[in-house]
Amino acid sequence: MERLVFLLSTGLARGAVLALFALSLVIVYRAARAVNFAQAAMAIVPVYVAFAVTSASGSYWLGLASALVVGALLGAVVERWLLRLVPQDNPLPGIIVAIGLVMVLQAGLAIAFGPDHRPVHAPFSQRPFEIAGVGVLSPYDLFVLVVAAVVMGSLAILFNRTSVGLQLRAAAFAPETSRLLGVRVPRMVTLGWMLSIATAALAALLLVPTGLGLDPHAADVLFVNAFAAAVIGGLDSPVGALVAGLVVGVLASLVTGYASAATAPLAVLALLTVVLLVRPHGLFAAREARTA
């Protein structure tokens, strides 16, 4: 029982990070109708910047803010000056360019900072609270959950309650109709990339202190699990990313705790397979449209 409570609570905190990263994949998929295979490499660049800023200034918060800003800028630069130049009529050239970008970014980071793991300290203790002798969430886990909730809440408000959010959604669903209503669609695509990479950078920043430390591949496994979560939830669905991210996080934590860490990816893969067999478009995919 104690073990179950502990595994559930850590799973929830890991799941929140997964959900955040999955959400970033959903945002970019909705904006550009493309799965961004460079998401992990693009997310880890701002984390290095945050690490450097934190080391230089001594402030975790300044590092966090710089990761968000650099993430957004990187998203804009990659979309505006790289992917927009790639032929759009089929997805393959974009995917190949993204994979090339992964190699360039990760090799660049290894050249600039070295390929070793760098220990990263969390801003709060990672020692779990004990309630009636049972270890539950640590202060850092709580921080992760709060940050994830605040970011998701803010994104939900942005997308559903503001004029920019309405334009972002319309541009994603119906680009030509949106242009006819005066929506600057290319600008909305750039904005989608900025939001997406900033969110992904935040997720990677939250993850790094809980793992082995910072290296150019530190977000790779996060990307794989978050991609699985995004597909399970439905690539088009922010709510799906949230729910599936939490489910995958808890599942991986339980399997790691009761079986072994090596089994966890297989469990995620099994869940993905079952969901794709039963609902190929994901659990929260949009309902069918009336055609008559």
Partner: peptide, 26 residues
Amino acid sequence: LALVPEGRSVVVELTVAENLRLGTCW
């Protein structure tokens, strides 16, 4: 200038109110 294109160009994923608001977004 405004064009209502052929084929009922409603953004089907948005609600009626959101479609109307979209018309004033610019």
